[in-house]
Lab assay of single mutants.
Amino acid sequence: NITNLCPFDEVFNATRFASVYAWNRKRISNCVADYSVLYNLAPFFTFKCYGVSPTKLNDLCFTNVYADSFVIRGDEVRQIAPGQTGNIADYNYKLPDDFTGCVIAWNSNKLDSKVSGNYNYLYRLFRKSNLKPFERDISTEIYQAGNKPCNGVAGFNCYFPLRSYSFRPTYGVGHQPYRVVVLSFELLHAPATVCGPKKST
């Protein structure tokens, strides 16, 4: 009989979030998941669920729940959905087409922007091929755009693959930082360890 609440607040209220290319994953298990708490945590810009209804979450049980978190800019949030393409979905964080879970995003301009520009958040701009779903690539190998090998040196047709967002508070919403948490629900042929409040007794 599990009584402890799932530590969603640790994920959502973390002081620092990860850069999207090096997104963070927390496995959540053996706890009571009260998803209604999430609705009250922040004024969400996005709370979209796929393959599951957000209002039914509190009635369900899962084997595992994974919470992935990272920062992107406002106009990239739409890429965090099944079947999307674009720089983020292709080279940084890719959801599977049959994704079961929820994408939660909110504006973090007050936390993640600086007047002089916050350069701490990076994204991958160049990659030889698209990522597979939930693949994480943290390599910093020089990207070869031409025929000549780069031998690890940046220059003509040889690019450092990561680029930094420079978040400034005066930017338009599309270029402001957004914190994203992706909850993916895993149903294996194994005992369910993460249940809503109704199912945990």
Score class of each variant (00 low, 15 high):
residue 1 N to E: 11
residue 2 I to C: 07
residue 2 I to A: 14
residue 4 N to S: 13
residue 4 N to M: 10
residue 6 C to L: 05
residue 8 F to V: 06
residue 8 F to W: 11
residue 9 D to A: 14
residue 11 V to A: 06
residue 14 A to P: 06
residue 15 T to Q: 12
residue 16 R to S: 15
residue 18 A to I: 04
residue 19 S to N: 06
residue 19 S to V: 02
residue 23 W to A: 03
residue 28 I to E: 03
residue 30 N to F: 09
residue 30 N to T: 09
residue 32 V to S: 10
residue 36 S to H: 10
residue 38 L to P: 05
residue 42 A to W: 12
residue 44 F to K: 15
residue 45 F to S: 15
residue 46 T to H: 15
residue 48 K to Q: 11
residue 50 Y to W: 14
residue 58 N to K: 13
residue 58 N to F: 08
residue 60 L to S: 10
residue 61 C to F: 07
residue 63 T to K: 14
residue 65 V to Q: 05
residue 69 S to N: 06
residue 70 F to N: 01
residue 80 I to E: 00
residue 80 I to V: 10
residue 81 A to D: 04
residue 83 G to D: 08
residue 86 G to R: 03
residue 87 N to H: 15
residue 89 A to I: 04
residue 89 A to T: 00
residue 91 Y to C: 05
residue 93 Y to T: 00
residue 96 P to K: 06
residue 97 D to T: 13
residue 97 D to R: 12
residue 100 T to N: 11
residue 105 A to L: 05
residue 108 S to G: 04
residue 108 S to N: 03
residue 111 L to I: 14
residue 116 S to K: 12
residue 118 N to Y: 04
residue 122 L to W: 08
residue 123 Y to M: 15
residue 124 R to D: 00
residue 128 K to P: 12
residue 131 L to D: 00
residue 133 P to G: 08
residue 135 E to M: 07
residue 138 I to T: 15
residue 144 Q to S: 08
residue 146 G to M: 01
residue 146 G to C: 02
residue 146 G to E: 01
residue 147 N to P: 11
residue 151 N to A: 11
residue 151 N to E: 12
residue 153 V to Q: 15
residue 153 V to T: 14
residue 154 A to G: 09
residue 156 F to V: 08
residue 157 N to V: 02
residue 161 P to L: 04
residue 165 Y to Q: 00
residue 167 F to L: 01
residue 170 T to S: 07
residue 170 T to G: 07
residue 170 T to Q: 07
residue 170 T to L: 04
residue 172 G to Y: 01
residue 181 V to P: 00
residue 184 S to C: 12
residue 184 S to G: 13
residue 188 L to C: 15
residue 189 H to M: 11
residue 190 A to N: 13
residue 190 A to I: 11
residue 190 A to P: 13
residue 191 P to R: 13
residue 191 P to A: 13
residue 192 A to L: 14
residue 193 T to R: 14
residue 195 C to M: 07
residue 196 G to H: 12
residue 196 G to K: 11
residue 199 K to E: 12
residue 200 S to M: 15
residue 201 T to V: 14
